[in-house]
Design a protein around this nucleic acid. Structure first.
Lengths: 112, 112
DNA sequence: GCAATAATTCTATATTTCTAGAAACAACGA
DNA sequence: TCGTTGTTTCTAGAAATATAGAATTATTGC
C-alpha cells in the first residue's frame, strides 16, 4: 500500500496540467505505451520540458520507462494509479461518532 | 464532471504532505467536519499555515467551509473526491489498438 | 568513424509555493 | 465596550518548480 509520502508525491505529480496531460495520454495509450517522441508529437511540448515532467512522473512511479533501442517507451503504471485513486477515501468516516460504517462516502446532502 | 483544469488543481491540492494530512483528517471526520482549531490540535501546525492550506483545498473544492459563530467548520467534499479518484483511469486504453475494451486497467504484468 | 536520431542534462530566468510571525478582523460574553 | 477566542490576511525570506534553448550522451546505420 501507498505511504502517505508516496501518495502526496503521486498527487503532486499529476497536480500540474502539463503533467496531467502527459499521464492521460499514456493512460489512453494503454499497455503499449508511447515513446517520448510520440508524446511530444501529441502534446507539442519542447523535449527538455517533457523530459522534466516525465522524470517527475517516473519518480512518483506513476509511469514506467523501458529503453528500447534509442527510444524510451513510457507506460502508465496502472496499479499505482488505482492505489492512488483509492487512497483519498480509504479511511472515510473512521472517526464518525454516530455510526462508523467505514467506506461509506455519503453525499454532500447527507450532513446530519 | 471535472474539467482537466479542475482535476489538476484538485491533485495539486492534495499533492503536498501537510495538505494531504489536512484532507485525511477531514475525511476521517466524516460529515460532521472539524473546525480550524480542531484540525490545528490534531496536526499541530501554526494557524496561518493551516489557513493557507485550507484555502488551497477550498479553492480546489475538495473542502467546504461553513461559518458557525466564530468557528469555521470544514468538511471533506466527498463527491468531489470521488470524481477526482475516478478521473485518472476513466479513459483507460481508449487508444488501445488491439482490443479497446474501455475501463480495463490491466495489471503491470500484462505488458507482453 | 561519422552522421542522424532519440532523449537527457545543463543552465538560467521567471514564477509559484512554503512557512510562520505579526497584525487585523469578527463574533461572542461579561 | 472591552477582553477573549477563532480565524484570516499581511509580510517576507527561503525553497521548489516551470520553461525552454543549448550542449551532451547514447544508439543505430552507413
Amino acid at each position: 500500500m501507498l505511504t502517505r509520502e508516496e501518495a502526496a508525491q503521486g498527487f503532486a505529480a499529476v497536480g500540474s496540467e502539463p503533467r496531467l496531460d502527459v499521464l492521460l495520454v499514456l493512460v489512453r495509450a494503454g499497455s503499449a505505451g508511447l515513446t517520448v517522441g510520440e508524446i511530444q508529437e501529441r502534446l507539442n511540448v519542447p523535449g527538455s520540458t517533457l523530459s522534466h515532467h516525465l522524470r517527475f512522473l517516473a519518480a512518483a512511479e506513476l509511469v514506467e520507462q523501458e529503453k528500447n533501442g534509442r527510444s524510451i517507451i513510457n507506460r502508465a503504471a496502472f496499479g499505482r494509479l488505482e492505489a492512488l485513486a483509492d487512497y483519498l477515501l480509504r479511511e472515510c468516516c473512521a472517526d464518525e461518532t454516530a455510526a462508523p460504517r467505514k467506506g461509506q462516502a455519503q453525499s454532500k446532502t447527507a450532513a446530519e
